[in-house]
Structure formats: C-alpha cells, structure tokens
Amino acid sequence: MLFGNTLHLVVGFLFVTIINANSDTERIAKFNQNMNRAWIIKDAIGNPECPGSRKNEIVYKKDLTKKLGDIKLLSNAGKNSEGVYTFPPGVDYEINGEKVPGDSLVVKLVRMDSDYDSCEAEILHRIGSLRDHGKLWKEANFGSDVEGSPRSSPSGARSNSGSDSGHSDSGSDSSVEWLDYGVLVMNKAKGKSLSQYEWWKQLSGPQKKELVEKTLVDIKSKVYGLLKTQHLLYADLNLDNILVEIETDDHGIHSFKEAHLVDFGFPGIFTVRKIPEPEEFDSWFYEQFNFYSADLRKAQNWREFSGRQLVADSDSESSGAGKRLSNHDAGTGGGTGRRRSNDSDAAGSG
C-alpha cells in the first residue's frame, strides 16, 4: 500500500513537472514570436541592435573615482538595485561647474564586460537623463554589501587590463581585486516598484489589479512615445523596472499618480525599422507584459492583460464601480484627510 501511494506521488510529480515544462516552453515560444515582429531590428544572433555599442573605451574614459568616493549602495534586495548607488544626504555633485543636489541623482556601475555596456549611456543621453559618465576604481563584486561604498583604489592596485592606479606600492592589499567600472550618473526617478510598498501585500486581488492596470496605461503611452520620438523600443516590461508614484492621503487612501521606466541597459532596448500602428503596438505591448507578469497573474488568478480589458475596466470605474485603495482595505496608517505625495523615491532614470 505504501509503495502504491509512493508511486502515485511520483507519477503525479512527474505529470505536474511535464505540464510546467510544456507551459514554460509555450510561454517562451510565444515571447520569441512577439519579439520577431517585422518592425523590430535585431542582429544575426537575435540580440538588439543597440545604439552606441562598442564604445566602452570612449564612454567610460574619464576617471570619476575621487568625485564618487562617498556614494552608498542603494540596496541589494532586488536585481534592479544591485550596483545602483545614491549620494549621502546633503552632498552635491558638480556637473559642468554647477553643483547639483545629490538627492536628485543616482549612480549606476557597469562592469564593462560586454560590447553593449556603452549602449545605456547613449540611450540615457537621448532621453535627457544622463548627467555624467566615466569610470571608477572599486573593489570587485560591488553588489554584495548594502552598507558598503566604493573606495578609492588602494596603493599599487591594478585593474585586469594592467593599468596602474598611480599610487605607490606601499600598503597595498594583494588579496583584493580592484577593477575599473563604468559609471553612469543619471536623474533619479520618483516612486517605487509596486511590490516595494509596505502596503502592497495587504491589498486585495482587485485592488492590486487596479493599480497594475493604471500603471500599464501610463507606461504604454510612455513606451510608445519613446518609440515615436527616438525609434527606441523598451522591451524589458518587468514590474521591477517600473517605478510608480503613489499619492496617499492622511486617511491612508492610496491612488495612482504616475509611472516611470528604469533600467535602459542591454538587452532591454531595441531599435525599429518603422513605427508600428497603435493597434500593432498595443498587441506587442500586452503580449510582452503578459510574459513578464506570468508569475503575478498566476498567483492572483488573473487572465492575460489586454487593451480591450483596460478600456472596459476604465469605463466601469468612471461609472462608479471603481474605488480608490483605502486604509481600511489595505491596512495602512490613518490621518486627517489631506492629500500628500509619497515621499519614498527609488533609484532609476526616466
């Protein structure tokens, strides 16, 4: 009897595994089909045709080590914050002779191990977010210590390329590897990814869906705008790459304000042969987001998102069926009822 139960469990496990494997295969195939639209340009092996590629030595030439010695790692809690740094409170950063408040900027370190690492600088420049760029001497594995900050190269340290740091050999630590990292100083985007808000887990499924839908409407407009003005297609439509500004009143009522894209690095940006018609773009956009949101949709038992669905939901809300996300529903703090913007900005650009 025990053997029979065990066999049943094993067969059941294999059956579920096969179903999941088939589901993943179909999902990836659907994604590849979506990215093979005729108007999207890719190279011979399927990589994006990335503007500004193969220019690492030019883009990351200026040494910014002394100017960036005090920056602090934002967080190592999420993949979109590893290698992203902020300035200490009250510290300004000089750009072209002008002092810019450090709290309006973030710093991203780039490993420069790909020909395409210079693409992000070009793209940030095109969208008006890049403020400075160069290189920085720093200990390897920059994303491992949330409290750590880049230190100037120790005496006598050398990069992999063998370039001398310019210091004497006294006091060097040969056990530590120091490398040149590319540096991008960029404008800071407001908001957080939805999952980073403390009250997100306490929202009901319909409330989460409402916020995601409003985020999609705003982001779709911005992705299409970038496509029309710069011929750049932002394809990495992961919710972690979308920062959302939330307005919260003193009763704890949360309402959507605006969404911002972050992480414009390879391989998430493609160029296009032509601008697709809005209907064609909408089809691509929702297919792309559905791919990246599969886990969330499965957890919430949501159907795939579509433009028609969002229009219907918007009409329902305007007729009185929709409601704002309240403190009573979400379990957040209360107050006197004045509207205030959320003050917790996250790093990024946009």
Rank of each mutant, 00 (worst) to 15 (best):
W200D: 06
K188A: 13
G182Q: 14
L211V: 02
G205A: 14
S221K: 14
T215I: 02
L194M: 13
L194S: 02
K222P: 04
W200F: 11
E198F: 15
N187L: 13
D180V: 09
S195Q: 13
E210V: 01
N187E: 14
V212D: 00
K192E: 06
D218V: 05
I219D: 09
K188Y: 02
P206D: 06
K222M: 06
L203Q: 00
T215S: 07
V185E: 05
L203P: 00
A189G: 05
T215D: 01
K220Y: 00
K220C: 03
V217D: 12
Q196Y: 08
E213C: 13
I219T: 10
M186D: 04
W199F: 08
G191N: 13
S221Y: 14
P206H: 05
K190G: 11
L184E: 07
Y181W: 10
K214N: 03
L184W: 04
M186L: 06
E210H: 02
S193C: 13
L203I: 00
K188G: 09
K201N: 15
Q196K: 10
S193P: 15
N187P: 13
L194Q: 03
S204W: 01
D180I: 11
M186C: 04
G205S: 15
V217H: 06
M186W: 04
K208A: 00
Q202L: 14
L203G: 01
K209L: 05
L211C: 03
K190Y: 05
G182F: 11
L211N: 02
Y197K: 07
K220S: 07
L203C: 04
S195A: 10
K209V: 02
D218R: 02
Q202M: 14
S221L: 10
V183G: 09
S221G: 15
K214L: 07
Y181A: 04
K190Q: 10
P206T: 01
D218C: 10
K192M: 11
S195N: 15
K192A: 03
E210M: 05
V185C: 07
S221D: 14
T215K: 00
Y181T: 08
W199C: 07
Q202K: 14
K190T: 12
K188T: 06
T215V: 03
G205R: 12
D180P: 01
P206K: 01
S193F: 10
K188D: 07
E198H: 12
I219M: 11
W200L: 05
V185S: 06
S193G: 08
K214T: 01
L184N: 09
V212N: 05
E213Q: 11
G182N: 10
E213N: 13
T215N: 01
K188W: 03
Q207W: 02
Y197L: 05
K192Q: 14
Q207M: 09
Q202S: 15
T215R: 00
V217G: 01
D180N: 15
V183E: 09
E213K: 12
L184I: 11
D218Q: 07
N187D: 15
V183W: 10
L203F: 01
V212F: 03
Q207H: 07
M186K: 09
K190V: 10
G182C: 14
K222V: 08
E210K: 10
S195P: 03
V185W: 04
K222Y: 07
P206Y: 06
W200M: 06
M186I: 06
K201L: 12
V212K: 00
S195F: 05
K201I: 11
G205L: 13
K208H: 02
G191M: 12
Q196I: 04
P206C: 02
